[in-house]
């Protein structure tokens, strides 16, 4: 489990979506999230669905992986749909389910809201499916760069994220060790009143803190020994460059949005 954590949901691949500049991907997805709410006709919804599915297909990621990323939200999508069927009472009665009337307005509204939700989730998950967390971190640092003017520590934020990527698996293993160590001492927390169980958290957390803080101090020492002096004048291992394909992607997306506005009423 620990090894898969730092790559997150990333599925390696070599599609043109994978190779796009992560900044461009983030910008496009943020715009998409906003523009989804502008769709209000069947045609405009259809156009956005076409865009989302075409993009998903061009990542060449197996549908199985994409569906796996959607698992936690299927419930929400279906729940929204069903709730609309029950609550909304507009339009004509289409048919009855166990003497419960289903209205045409409910069907349309439930479907469009579920579809909008599905589109949002599909497109945003494409970002994390085709981009490694490290790339996204670099992109965030670059996109937030203007905030440096108001003294927001952008570089430090990005570095903090990179460091935590490195340490999340380590500390998770540590937690696993602590839980096994406690179990081997025969500690039983499974029974007993609520108060005892909550209090039992403290002896579990103390070793976790000790190891976490020790790691933080070792790391700080190592950084200082190597002459870390903040972001000023620091060079980068990975440089982000905007290439021709990124401009083309932006152009295509602009076209999608223009058509969307033509299709809405």
């Amino acid at each position: 489990m620990s090894n898969s954590i730092i790559i997150g949901q990333y599925v390696p691949g070599d599609s043109w979506i994978h190779r796009l500049d992560p900044r461009i991907k983030i910008v496009i997805i943020f715009c998409f999230v906003v523009f989804v709410f502008f769709a209000n006709t069947a045609l405009s919804y259809g156009w956005l669905t076409l865009f989302a599915i075409a993009t998903a297909a061009s990542t060449k990621i197996k549908a199985r992986f994409i569906a796996k990323g959607l698992t936690p939200v299927w419930f929400l999508i279906i729940f929204t749909f069903v709730l609309h069927l029950i609550v909304t009472r507009e339009g004509t009665v289409l048919f009855e389910v166990f003497t419960f009337p289903i209205y045409s307005g409910a069907l349309i509204q439930g479907f469009s809201i579920s579809l909008r939700f599905f589109l949002l989730i599909l497109v945003t998950s494409l970002l994390t499916l085709t981009t490694t967390p490290i790339e996204i971190t670099d992109a965030i640092e670059s996109l937030l760069h203007p905030l440096k003017k108001i003294k927001f520590p952008v570089h430090e934020l990005a570095l903090m994220m990179s460091i935590s990527l490195r340490f999340i698996p380590t500390l998770m293993q540590e937690t696993e060790k602590i839980s096994k160590a406690q179990a081997s001492r025969g500690v039983d927390f499974k029974t007993g009143p609520l108060k005892d169980r909550i209090q039992a958290v403290v002896p579990l957390l103390v070793p976790l803190f000790v190891s976490a803080f020790k790691r933080a101090e070792d790391l700080a020492m190592a950084m200082e020994a190597r002459g870390y002096r903040g972001g000023e004048g620091r060079s980068k291992l990975r440089e982000l460059v905007i290439r021709k394909q990124d401009i083309i992607a932006l152009g295509l997306f602009a076209f999608v949005i223009v058509v969307l506005f033509l299709l809405r009423s």
Binding site: E156, M160, L171, L208, A216, L219
Partner: peptide
Amino acid sequence: ISALQLSYGAIFVCLMAIGANIVIWF
């Protein structure tokens, strides 16, 4: 921000990640 502050901040990101999923281990 010193290196020590930076690493403490990063460690808290890890602790949050563990805290969110603590039931996996306990």
